[in-house]
Structure formats: C-alpha cells, structure tokens
Design a protein around this nucleic acid. Structure first.
Lengths: 198, 198, 198, 198
DNA sequence: TATGAATGAGGGTTCATTCAT
DNA sequence: CATGAATGAACCCTCATTCAT
C-alpha cells in the first residue's frame, strides 16, 4: 500500500531538513534573523519557499531550532575538552584553536543576546544556558588541576575560566575572515591570560 | 528672516541632527540596520518621520553617517592613548577599562564587517579604516618603548598590538550587559596578553 | 483483477466518495467554501489530500456536487409532505418540526445565494431550482384543500406558501444551536401564519 | 506650526474611516471575512492597501469594529420601536417592514454565529449581546400592553417576542434580493404570529 | 520647517493543485 | 489506488519613501 518505504521517506525528509538548517545557519549568522529572507534560504536550498513550511512551521521556529542546536553544540564542545589529550594547558591550547565550524553558532547566540526583535523563546533558551552554571562548573576541576601542577596562574579559578572563555566567545563572534583588518590571535598569546607567563 | 534668526535656526538644525544621530546610533547598535525602523528613530527623537528626510536623504545615508563618526571616534581614541599619564603599561591598562560610550560604535562596525545587507559604501569605509595601517602604526612606538623598559613581553610588537586590540574589540562587540551570562574580564587578566606576567 | 474484485473496489470507491461528501457538507456548511481547506476534509475523512483528486477534479467540483445533492434533497422533502399522515394542517405541522438532517443543505444553498465567490455553476443550479416553479406548484393543491376544509386562512394560496416556506427556510439557515441567543420557535406559533388563528 | 488644522485633519480622517467601514460592511456581508480580500476593500474605497493600516490595525480589527457597530445598530433599532407612532400592533407592523439598511449588519452577525474562522473577540461580543437579555427585556412591556388591549394573542409574552424576532432576524439574514426565488413576506402575514388572527 | 497621510514594493505565510513514487 | 512531497500564486501585512498641506 505504502507507495514509498516509510523509512526511506523519513530519511529523505531528515536530509532535507538538515540541508535547510545548514543553509539557514549560514545565512542567519551573516544577515541576522530579519535580514535573511525565506526566499534566500529557499533558493540556496534549491527548494520552493512553500516547501520550507513542510519542515518548519515558521521562520521563527527555524531560528529557534538553530538556537537549540547551537546550545547543544556548545555543551558538547565543553564536555569534549576533557577527552582531549595532554595536560590541562595542552587541552586548553587545543580549545584556543578556534574551530571554524562552531563560529556561526556563536554568531547566532550573539544575535540573540544583543538584538531586539528575536523570538522571545530564543532569548529564554539562551538565558537557561548560562555560562555560569554550565561551562564554569564543568571546567573548574580542570583549572584547579592545572594550578596544582603549576601550569596555570594562581587565583580564583572561576574568574580565570570566565575571563578566558569570554574572550574566546568574543573572538568567535567577531567572525574574523581572511584578508580582514582583524587577525585571529595566536593561541599562545591568548593562553597567557590563564598561564600568566610568556 | 533676520540674520540672527537664520543663525538660530541653523543651531537648532544642528542640534536636531545630533539628536537624530544619537538616537539612531543607539537603535542601530541594538537592532541592526534592518531591525531598526525609521518610525522608531522618529518617535524617540520626538519628530515626525517625514522630517527625518530633511536631515538625511535616506536610511542608508543616516547609517553611513554614523559609520563615519564611528571611524572618527576610534581614531581619536587611539590618538588619545598617548596623552594618558604613566608608563606604556599604565596607558594600556586605562584603555582596557572599556568605555561604555564607545561601545555602540564598535557594534555598528561589527555589523558592517559581519553582515551582508548593509550599504556597500559602509563596507568600503570600514575597509579603508584598516587596523593594520592605522592603529598598529600609531601604537607601535608605545609598545616598543614598553618592551625596552621591560614592562611588556618581548616579540614582534605588531603581533602583540594586533592580538591585544582584536581581543578588546571583540569584547566591546560582545556588548556585555549587567546580569549577563558573560562577565567583562578584569583589566589585569587581559593585560597578561601583552605583559606575559601574572 | 478478477471481476469480483473490481466490483468490490467500485463499492469501496462509492463508499469513500460518500464519506467525502458527508464530511465536506458538514464543513462547507459551517465554514463556507473558502473557509474550508481541503486538508480539513482529507483529515476528517482519514485519507490523503492527493486522494481527494481521484474522486473530485477540484474543490469547486466537490462543492457543486453537494449543491446538486442539496437541491435533490429539498425536492424530495417537498414531495414527502404528501405522504405524511393527517389533514393538510397536520402535514404542515410536521414540516415545521425542522429536521436537523437537512439543515446543512439549507446553509449551503444560503451561501450560494448570498455569497459572491462561489462557483458560477453553483449559482446557476440554484437559480434553476426556483421555489416558485417547484415548491409552490407542488404544494398548491395541499393548501387549497386546507382552505376548503377551513383549516387554513383564506387568500391567495401561492402567497401563503411562499411566506410560510420562506420563513421556514430562513429559520433553517439561521442554524440555531442549543444554548443560543435565538430559540427555534414552536411549530404552533409558526403555523399561525397559514391558519390565521391562535 | 501645525501644517493643517488639527480639526480638519481629524474630520478627513473620520470620513475616510467611515468610507472604509461602509465598503467593508458591504463586502464582508456578501463574501464573508475570509472571502473578502483587503485589495477589494482598498480598490472600492479608492485607496491603497497600505493606507488601510493607518485606519485599522488589521483585517480582524476592521471586522470587529463592524460587529460592534452592528450590535450598536440593533440596540438602537429596538429602542426605536417605542418611539414609533400608534398602538403596539402598529408599532410592530412598522418593524416588520424590514429596512434594507440594517440587513448587512444582520448578515455579519449571522456569519459570526455560524462560521468558524472568525476572530474570537467577535464571537465574544455577539455572545454578550444576547437577544434574551436585551431585546426581550426591552419589548416585554410593549407586548403585555398589546395583550391587554386585545391586539396580541394571549400567552407567555417572552415566548411571543422570541418567536417573532427570531423569524424577523432569520428573514433579514436570508438577504432576499429582487428577482429572487424567495419573496419577502408581507408584514401582515408575519404579524399573525403575534396576533393569532388573519 | 514640519506634519501625517499616502503609496507600493516586498516580506512571511497559506493552500489548492500536481507529481514522483 | 494511494501517499505526501513539492510548487506557486495570492493572501495579509510592514515600512521606507514621497507628497500635499
């Protein structure tokens, strides 16, 4: 009866959905929520505008879905740090090599934090994901260990974490491109913030 | 009619223009070019929408005017560093106490750099104001002196400047608010980037 | 394949068609032609939207089919009056107990008569089914007989019929619901129109 | 300063507003809320679509405004009955000559009562204006007087009122046109409902 | 100068209809 | 026969800009 395998259909659906999310992420990151027309997303995904509404109930919902993914992504990244090889400092050095993949997500979150005119739900999601309660709690043991073995500068570890990751987030948000006036700083210079040594 | 009146009118005109620019700066910074409606600017300036067009030919022109002011402002700020009291390090410490006044300008520039959908002319202006050719050139002597007297870490001074000011710009752009997940880092932690000491 | 199967299929087909018509009638009556989405009809019939097009060429055709059924229904109802038991007045009293089943059809016809934006063909059908030429002609003998035996008030019987059935149709169209501001009047009060007696 | 008399402006505004309401009433009555496009209203009022939004925040608001007017109108009409000349029966006879002006309002109310897809607020307004609590209360004294002087049939006056006005409302809603299958009944025939006499 | 009405292009969204499977 | 993805036209609505006063 079923004219197409239920399963196949679902796979196609999911792929298409991911395509849309990918395109939308890129565009929202660069142009903002209002600045991104659905026609752009549709065109770049090679689908009709109407079809977007088979996958997302509205532009806002599409945006919010991306915010949820962004938060998920950031959490995973923080958790991932522990699985990196080496001493605490070496782990942090790897984090400092800012990955290009995560950048659009940072920009999205930045928009939610700084712009009016984004869906209220997006703002609430961002507020729930507080750096305070998540990132800092997660990384405190790592910093304490780094201080114990003398790799990291002494002082309140929570303050150190906050400073370091605020700077990293900010740099992500700057979205530095090649041939740009700004230059993405070398990791070793940034690490001075936490090591207190050249 | 009378020359006196003309003059007064001109003064009122200029004041009004400044008012508009002030309001627009605040709104553009928070909501972006597209997200800011002329009706908002008019309302907050307590003038009619139509009157805006006596002062600026278009929304884009208003935006571009602000970009020009932003660049002017940043140049002045860099120049101002030399007039601060104290050793090079002390001067830089003062810069690190990020001034709230300049923040909206940073956000405007950030928008131009990272967003599509802003007037082409704005992009050109920003590209002309290259950190490379202006900020770095201006501050190189200061950093070299700081290295000479041992206050600053050794190494390529231009790289140091770039890193330090990129981080400052990025933090400005984050537009950290009270009761925010992020916390504006203490100046001393940021200065470690250039001193290499705790 | 086998003739038996073909036959069964045809039966299923016809049943399905009736289901669709039933659902559509209910929805069109309450929401109007434009206010009823094909997706609603499909959902309530438990079939896909696409399948609707195997049974009806378009939304308009579906609507027109219902109008044809409505007219058929009303004709049958008028014919049915003669088969009711009792004197002419008793027959009319039974008609006045307005049957709920026919109400959606009345509402459909009302829509065609009063709304623009319905298919032209529907309007033509309704105009052909003129109360004048059908209902009145059919019921004239009944009224004349009623007048003869003194049950009905004297006067032009055609005028009486027109008045009485216009009122009934109008009440049908009002689609009075329970707990409504309006109350469906008692049959005896309405019958005063034709009897001229309390 | 004021470039145009505040007062004049207001007058023009009000006139335009009335124009729009008039056109919208006519169209909504015949085509329903959904069936009436703003472009139709704009075109018939000879203004641009955009200008509609200077006068009404949305299509729904326009519709609701008309519902409010409709209720107001109906109340006035009921109150007006007492000021008509003559005996109670003569007053009612005048009411029975259904005025064409009020018809679109009846149709609007009918739509709200019978259609889904109209603004919730409109439904609430209609429910508040209950015939029960308003029309009947208002007219009860008139009917009682009519019964006292033998003009009206005996029996529960509230039931009589309900029946009579339900029939009148229903006939209004039928929106009988010239050269229509239906014919608006003569007043005297309808009055039999309340008089019980030919 | 100053206002607010007026316009119209273009946005997000809906939905009847078609099509590939 | 049956599905649900896919399309595109047309809707409501917004807003930068112009215009009459």
């Amino acid at each position: 009866m079923s004219p197409l395998k239920e399963e196949q259909l679902q796979i196609i659906r999911d792929e298409r959905r991911e395509q849309i999310l990918e395109v939308a992420l890129k565009l929202f990151a660069r142009r903002g929520l209002i600045g991104t027309k659905l026609s752009m997303i549709a065109q770049e995904t090679r689908i009709s505008q109407g079809l977007l509404y088979h996958y997302f109930k509205s532009k806002d919902e599409l945006f919010i879905t991306l915010i949820e993914k962004a938060i998920q992504k950031l959490k995973e990244e923080v958790n991932h740090i522990y699985q990196l090889p080496g001493t605490p400092l070496e782990k942090l050095r790897n984090v400092a090599r800012l990955n290009e993949e995560g950048m659009p997500y940072y920009m999205l979150i930045h928009q939610v934090r700084t712009s009016d005119g984004v869906p209220e739900q997006a703002k609430e999601l961002i507020q729930q994901y507080s750096m305070e309660t998540y990132v800092i709690d997660q990384l405190e043991p790592l910093f304490i260990e780094g201080q114990k073995i003398g790799e990291l500068a002494p002082g309140d570890p929570r303050k150190l974490i906050t400073c370091y990751f605020t700077v990293l987030s900010a740099l992500m948000t700057l979205n530095i491109q090649e041939d740009d006036a700004y230059q993405m700083p070398e990791a070793d210079l940034l690490l001075r913030i936490v090591t207190g040594r050249p």
